[in-house]
C-alpha cells in the first residue's frame, strides 16, 4: 500500500540552513548535508530545501549544496525558491535534485508549468501555493504570503493540475507558525477536487495535528520545519503514532 509521507523542510541561504536548529549530537546544525542525512536516517520520507538566497552568488552556493546532498542522501528531495526558468530547473536536476518546486514564477507566468512539465516530466514539477483565508475565501499570495493576488486557491490549483504539475505543496499562511494544526478543511477540499498528490504545510505543532492532516485534511504528505528542527516531535515516534491511527506509514 502506498504510504503517506512525512517531509522535513529546510530553509537554505548561501548553502547553509538558516532556521534555528536544535539537535544534540549534530556537530554542525547549519550544514544541510549533515542535517539531511540525519533526517533520512530517522525515517523522513522526503526532504524539501527552500532556498531563500537573495543573490546570484548565494544561489550558486546552493547549487553546490544540492550536489553534495545528492551525493550522500538516498531518499528523494525537492528544491524550491527563486526558480523561474527552464535553465534554473535544468541546473538543479543536473545537480541531483529529484523535484523542483515553483511558486511566484508560476503565478506570474502560468505557461511555465506546461513548459517544465513537458520538458522534464510532471513527476518532478511541484507547484507551491501559499494561501490565506480572507473573509471566507482562500486567496493565493505571493512573496511568502505578504502580497495577495486575485486568484482563488481552488481555481488556481485546478489550473496548476491541468497545466501539468505533478504535485501541489499547499501552505496556509493563516496556520503557518501558529502550531495550531493544518488548514484541514481547505486541504480536504483541495485533495478531493484534484487528482494529483497534495502536501500539507503550515501549522504543525503536535503529533495529533499530523493525524488530522491525513484523516480530516486527506493530505498525501505533510511537511513541517520547526517541530522537527527543535526536536519537539521526533520522526520515528510520529510515524509510529500515525500508523497506530490507521495511517499507512513506511516504518
Amino acid at each position: 500500500m502506498l504510504t503517506k509521507r512525512i517531509i522535513p523542510c529546510l530553509d537554505i541561504k548561501n548553502g547553509r540552513t538558516v532556521k534555528g536548529i536544535n539537535f544534540k549530537h549534530l556537530r554542525d546544525a547549519g550544514n544541510p548535508v549533515d542535517l539531511a542525512q540525519r533526517y533520512a536516517s530517522m525515517g523522513a520520507d522526503e526532504l524539501v530545501f527552500l532556498d531563500i538566497s537573495a543573490t546570484l552568488e548565494e544561489r550558486n552556493t546552493t547549487l553546490e549544496m544540492v550536489l553534495k546532498v545528492a551525493e550522500r542522501i538516498n531518499i528523494p528531495f525537492t528544491v524550491g525558491g527563486g526558480i523561474s526558468s527552464v535553465e534554473d530547473v535544468d541546473r538543479l536536476l543536473k545537480s541531483g535534485a529529484d523535484k523542483v518546486s515553483i511558486n511566484s514564477s508560476a503565478i506570474k507566468n502560468p505557461e511555465l508549468i506546461n513548459t517544465l512539465s513537458h520538458k522534464f516530466g510532471k513527476q518532478c514539477i511541484t507547484v507551491a501555493i501559499d494561501a490565506k483565508e480572507i473573509d471566507g475565501e482562500w486567496i493565493v499570495h505571493l512573496a511568502g504570503g505578504s502580497i495577495p493576488t486575485t486568484l482563488n486557491v481552488f481555481d488556481w490549483a485546478k489550473e496548476v493540475e491541468s497545466r501539468g504539475a505533478g504535485e501541489i505543496l499547499f501552505t496556509s499562511m493563516n496556520n503557518d507558525g501558529t502550531k495550531s494544526g493544518f488548514a484541514n478543511v481547505a486541504l480536504a477540499k483541495l485533495s478531493q477536487s484534484l487528482n494529483i498528490p497534495i502536501i500539507a504545510s503550515g501549522g504543525a505543532g503536535t503529533m495529533q495535528h499530523f493525524v488530522e492532516a491525513f484523516t480530516i485534511g486527506k493530505a498525501d504528505a505533510a511537511l513541517a520545519a520547526s517541530v522537527f528542527h527543535f526536536n519537539d516531535i521526533a520522526i520515528p515516534e510520529l510515524k509510529e503514532e500515525l500508523q497506530n491511527n490507521g495511517i499507512p506509514m513506511r516504518l
Binding site: M1, L2, T3, K4, R5, D45, E46, K122, Q123, G166, E167, N195, I196, P197, D220, A221, R250
Partner: peptide, 13 residues
C-alpha cells in the same frame, strides 16, 4: 485510473 491520485508518488511495498 482516476480512482487514485496520479502520479503515484511515494513509498510502496
Amino acid at each position: 485510473s482516476t480512482a487514485v491520485k496520479v502520479p503515484q508518488m511515494g513509498w510502496n511495498t
